[in-house]
């Protein structure tokens, strides 16, 4: 790890002052990704601003709109086992339990989960080029070892994926990210929080360096009746998704009233396509409709060799997830039989 200084501000204003003082400063909460990357010399902050003691960011509260506000410091474990989330947003609880391990979930924060960086082998290996780590150095994953890489929304500079499970569910639930900065507070719709790599793969999100996530707000609708989080990976636990699907449906008799589908493991951000979801509205909740949605979602998918299988896998996973959601039989994260 590089040398850095440490600050532990007592309140949000203090934290924002600390971060503004030093462009090399970074906030730290759970540290499960940042410390990891610092040990690999991928992240080399000059100052760490410890936000774990900031007041008011560690609660799950009701919002005026009828949703829930999850403070940025709420641990992944607290989300997974919160009774209100379990009842009203079981999709979110399930996605959180699909990720990492109990130890990591105990330490990892909500804000930090949103800011997780890719697991691309090259990004992690400072001895190799990587446009995300070192802009302009190249992307060896293109034409290299890329079985875990993206099939959607890639650019010629980067084919990395976003590794979070929780974010896939938050995308499907259309959460809103609450942010504070020197200019005050702002709200970022989840779909606009993470970015595609484009010409600047070094930027994962639209958050500015001097801004801090304060909360994630869930809108009232939680799709508690018809949802699933289906994660497919290289072993049955403690592995990142090759493909994951968060599916949420509102049914009206045998027909779909509304649908949400978000994909993990396939793009630089949780992948959604509102047109594909809109096209499901009014359709019967059956395989043929699901197949059409899958076709639309994956229309632009492109493999890079080792990850070609992901296109087919994602299609099958979407079909299964939608049928699980429609049947009201969400995937268990402990019984590994796929429903």
């Amino acid at each position: 790890m590089n040398r850095f200084t440490y600050a532990r501000p007592a309140d949000l204003a203090g934290a924002l002052r600390e971060i503004a003082r030093d462009p090399g400063a970074r906030f730290i909460a759970g540290g499960t990704n940042l410390v990891d990357l610092m040990k690999y010399d991928v992240e080399r902050p000059t100052r760490l601003v410890d936000v774990t003691r900031l007041p008011g960011l560690d609660a799950i509260e009701e919002t005026a709109a009828g949703g829930l506000r999850i403070g940025a410091l709420v641990s992944n474990t607290a989300i997974a086992y919160d009774a209100r989330i379990g009842r009203r947003y079981p999709l979110l609880a399930s996605a959180v339990l699909a990720g990492a391990s109990p130890q990591l979930r105990n330490a990892a924060s909500t804000g930090g989960n949103l800011l997780q960086r890719t697991r691309c082998y090259y990004f992690y290996d400072a001895a190799t080029p990587c446009n995300k780590r070192e802009p302009g150095s190249g992307c060896p994953a293109i034409g290299g070892v890329n079985r875990i890489h993206a099939i959607l929304g890639t650019s010629e500079h980067c084919i990395a994926t976003h590794p979070s499970d929780m974010c896939v569910a938050l995308a499907a639930l259309e959460a809103v990210v609450q942010v504070a900065g020197p200019g005050g507070e702002r709200a970022i719709p989840f779909a606009e929080f993470h970015r595609l790599p484009g010409d600047h793969p070094e930027r994962d999100t639209t958050l500015c360096q001097d801004e801090i996530i304060t909360a994630v707000e869930l809108p009232p609708e939680g799709f508690a009746e018809h949802h699933t989080y289906l994660k497919l990976r290289d072993r049955l636990s403690y592995a990142f998704a090759l493909v994951s699907v968060a599916a949420a449906l509102e049914l009206d008799g045998g027909r779909i009233a509304r649908a949400r589908i978000a994909l993990g493991g396939v793009a630089h951000k949780p992948w959604r396509m509102p047109e594909a979801e809109a096209a499901l509205a009014g359709q019967p909740a059956e395989a043929a409709s699901f197949a059409l949605a899958a076709d639309r979602l994956l229309a632009g998918a492109q493999g890079h060799g080792h990850n070609d299988f992901k296109i087919d896998l994602a299609r099958r996973a979407i079909l299964r997830a939608l049928s699980q959601a429609a049947a009201g039989t969400p995937q268990s994260q402990t019984d590994k039989r796929i429903r």
């Binding site: 540290g31 990891d36 474990t77 990591l104 105990n106 330490a107």
Partner: peptide, 24 residues
């Protein structure tokens, strides 16, 4: 944080001590 060998109980909760900065 990839193996769990460093697991300790921190205020009663299990965590990977390799990813926890001591000053925090």
């Amino acid at each position: 944080g990839q193996c769990g060998a460093c697991t300790v109980l921190l205020d009663g909760r299990r965590v990977n001590s390799c990813l926890a900065l001591a000053v925090m």
